[in-house]
């Protein structure tokens, strides 16, 4: 393949994983929920999109549907899971990720089982060249990425975002201040799941074929790596973390085609990631980007009051 296709492929993967990383950031970075089943919602979104499209639903409706079903799945899952302590939540979510993948593998009538599903491409009937289709996918995925980024940046800089952060800090204290933490956790979980579902739909639409082996728990861990690398509770961190990991991930696949090495460079990346995470946790435990105080728009006013009261 020529290099521009490789480049555009990398860009699409960057966007899809940046969206996933941001969705985990809402759950973990802001609300403190350790979701180790991220891949389940990614899978749910991808399969919903594929099945809906095959049933003749227009592609834009299918995108919305994949967000909705993932949000519903997240909501259902949060009912029992959110009453658990953090470590148990991690185990339950991890298990649900695997259960869903095995379900998809077994229910051949619905999901094609191990044979997977061929997904019709949105851009297939437009008579575009390979490069143009790849470019259209880049635009689509980065467009969605920007929309998700703006939405989350708004959401986390509101009184609502303040409640989420407070739950991460101390959910008993939040309860003592009249807010039901379970409700907010469930909402954060559903928002994160919906966004992961959209990422899944983008993935299915780009790959044009999905099977259960694309949704191994490794996907979840990759997303975690991105978020920890970039820095939690900072949307720039979530995106940049995803970009860096994808440069390694896709880059090593590309290197395999261009370099004649006695080993597979793609396997080296896992060693590199391990070293990177260790160094990061030692020297920069909060990640590349630091958490910033949230801004609801009253901060400038408050500084004004402060200076006028200190001059009294």
């Amino acid at each position: 393949m020529d290099f521009t296709v490789y480049l555009m492929d990398t860009l699409v993967f960057m966007a899809i994983f940046a969206i996933l990383s941001m969705s985990l950031n809402v759950e973990y970075g802001y609300t403190g929920l350790g979701n180790f089943g991220k891949v389940a919602f990614f899978l749910c979104g991808a399969y919903t999109y594929a099945i809906a499209l095959l049933l003749g639903v227009p592609f834009y409706v299918s995108f919305v549907l994949s967000a909705v079903t993932s949000a519903i799945l997240g909501g259902l899952m949060s009912l029992p899971a959110l009453r658990l302590r953090e470590d148990y939540l991690a185990i339950v979510t991890l298990a649900i990720g695997e259960v869903l993948r095995i379900f998809v593998k077994a229910e051949e009538w619905l999901t094609g089982g191990v044979w997977g599903i061929t997904v019709p491409s949105v851009f297939a009937n437009l008579g575009l060249s390979v490069d143009a289709v790849a470019f259209a996918n880049v635009l689509l995925s980065w467009g969605v990425l920007i929309a998700v980024f703006l939405f989350l940046r708004y959401l986390t800089n509101t009184p609502y975002g303040r409640v989420l952060l407070s739950i991460r800090e101390d959910d008993t204290a939040v309860q003592a201040l009249g807010k039901n933490p379970i409700l907010y956790k469930a909402q954060a979980f559903m928002i994160g799941s919906a966004i992961a579902g959209i990422a899944g739909a983008l993935f299915a639409q780009y790959m044009r074929f999905i099977d259960p082996y694309m949704f191994l728990p490794m996907v979840t861990f990759t997303v975690w790596m991105m978020l920890i690398l970039g820095g939690t509770a900072n949307h720039y961190g979530a995106v940049v973390g995803a970009l860096i990991v994808e440069i390694f991930n896709r880059g090593s696949r590309i290197a395999k085609d261009y370099l004649d090495l006695p080993f597979d460079p793609h396997n080296i990346q896992f060693i590199l990631f391990g070293v990177l995470i260790i160094l990061l946790l030692l020297y920069r435990p909060y990640g590349l980007f630091r958490e910033k105080p949230l801004k609801t728009g009253v901060e400038a006013e408050v500084i004004k009051w402060q200076s006028s009261s200190s001059t009294k």
Partner: peptide, 15 residues
């Protein structure tokens, strides 16, 4: 029981 990573103002506004 404060929200330590939040500002003093945010702590009050939470209430």
């Amino acid at each position: 029981r404060l929200f330590f990573k939040l500002t003093v103002l945010d702590n009050l506004l939470m209430a």
